[in-house]
Write a protein that binds this DNA or RNA. Sequence first.
DNA 1: CGAGTAGTTGAGTGGCCTCAAAGCGCGTGG
DNA 2: CCACGCGCTTTGAGGCCACTCAACTACTCG
Lengths: 257, 257
Amino acid sequence: MATTGRKPPARRASPLLRHAVETAHCTHAVKLSVLRQLPFLADLTDSEVQGLCGIFRDTGYASGQAVYVAGEPARRLFVVASGKVKIVRTGPDGQDLLVDMLSDGDFFGSLERLGEERYSEGAVAHVQSCVLAASAEDFQSILARFPPVSVRLVSILAGRLRSAHEKLQMLSGLSVEARIASILLRLASRFGEAHPLGTLIQLPLSREELAEMAGTTTESASRVTSRFSRDGLIRTGRRWVAVSDRDRLAVAAESGS
Amino acid sequence: MATTGRKPPARRASPLLRHAVETAHCTHAVKLSVLRQLPFLADLTDSEVQGLCGIFRDTGYASGQAVYVAGEPARRLFVVASGKVKIVRTGPDGQDLLVDMLSDGDFFGSLERLGEERYSEGAVAHVQSCVLAASAEDFQSILARFPPVSVRLVSILAGRLRSAHEKLQMLSGLSVEARIASILLRLASRFGEAHPLGTLIQLPLSREELAEMAGTTTESASRVTSRFSRDGLIRTGRRWVAVSDRDRLAVAAESGS
DNA sequence: CGAGTAGTTGAGTGGCCTCAAAGCGCGTGG
DNA sequence: CCACGCGCTTTGAGGCCACTCAACTACTCG
């Protein structure tokens, strides 16, 4: 069992959860419970949240489908009800950067005052997802009616800004190996679940996507994950990764260039 | 001063403004006028702003002096009244990344709800500066008393987040040359002023600082600026840079790797 | 005018990208 | 249930960009 050699007997399917097809749209009850748990609505009473229900419309997205693309007029704010949504920036030469991976309860889209701006990044459903959408105007009216909402938003945005600065530091100062180790650790703490193989990252994760997060190429990402796997830091398969030795991975994440 | 127009290497002093020493502290009148012009206080009446005056204390910082260092308990929010403040992250191996350069009217420091967190980055006066400071509690009370303030803050923070994502893309996808070109263009539009040499970036700017913004080394930054200077895209001197051909610099900023 | 700091330049090396092709996991169809 | 085959993954060879180390030049200030 400890051997990881060329042993193909264990014919197991991907350890990832299968996302039920019927979650494309969420029921009214689910929608309400999602809204109730939104961090930025935490200070509102149940009945107040219920009153906001009508502002949000739910839409289902298939895996890989775009919620919006960069350049489109930014007129709506979105909330992930279920599934995963990735935020992507595409460079002039076609190189993609995966800026963020959002999950249940995370918001994205237009937060600016006017709907005149355009999205500077694209949003793509990474798995089958249900997304709630509100118009920018309706959302501004929420902010006006319920002051505590903006206060919460300030806190959340400050946290995201710090996270973005951490990524900046990571990209600028670390080697590809250390960057990928950091990313895996972050993903494991955000999306990880206990599993016989270690902490399984509950998310379809290809080498290419890992590369887009690390700002490198598919081949380099593959070389690094192969090495980690050989050394027993992680287990990998087709589009999935599990962290089996968090401590040694953390060491790898700190070695400079 | 007797020697007039000489050969190309004319003996001239730095074209940058000299920052008067006496601006270390700002007068009460200056302080009020700074507060009145703060973007996130834009919806408040003059008398309301005047009421907030007592919450902010002004402090002078000498060039190079730290406002706070990373790791220190985050208990205050700051506003630049005059001068320039740089936000710096230091990596485990000592490599610094210059995350942001703030100017008059920009805020920094603790925006989170509780003062229990610690600063994740350091803040250093880049030139002689006057900085206003409020305790995190006082600031939260402003947010509670004046709801439009948080709404403005949400907008501002969303803009900063977008800017951080742009920097991420720049660092991950562009060559050192393109990164430095981008940075110079951004600095020129933010801090530039008309000057016989071109658009002078009104900011002491060493090769090392340029390197810390671009996530590269002093030597590489020097090589790139030398080349730009030889090709007539910029003019440089000891700790200053002027953009003389914005269009060609923009072309250099777009060439992939 | 001398000392210290900022900037420049060169040679050498190595990490990462590029191009290319073989290897296999996993969902699907038979 | 098994085998097929798509496309994700791995591995190799070669080359270039940028980092490192090091010496030298040129400004600025006391």
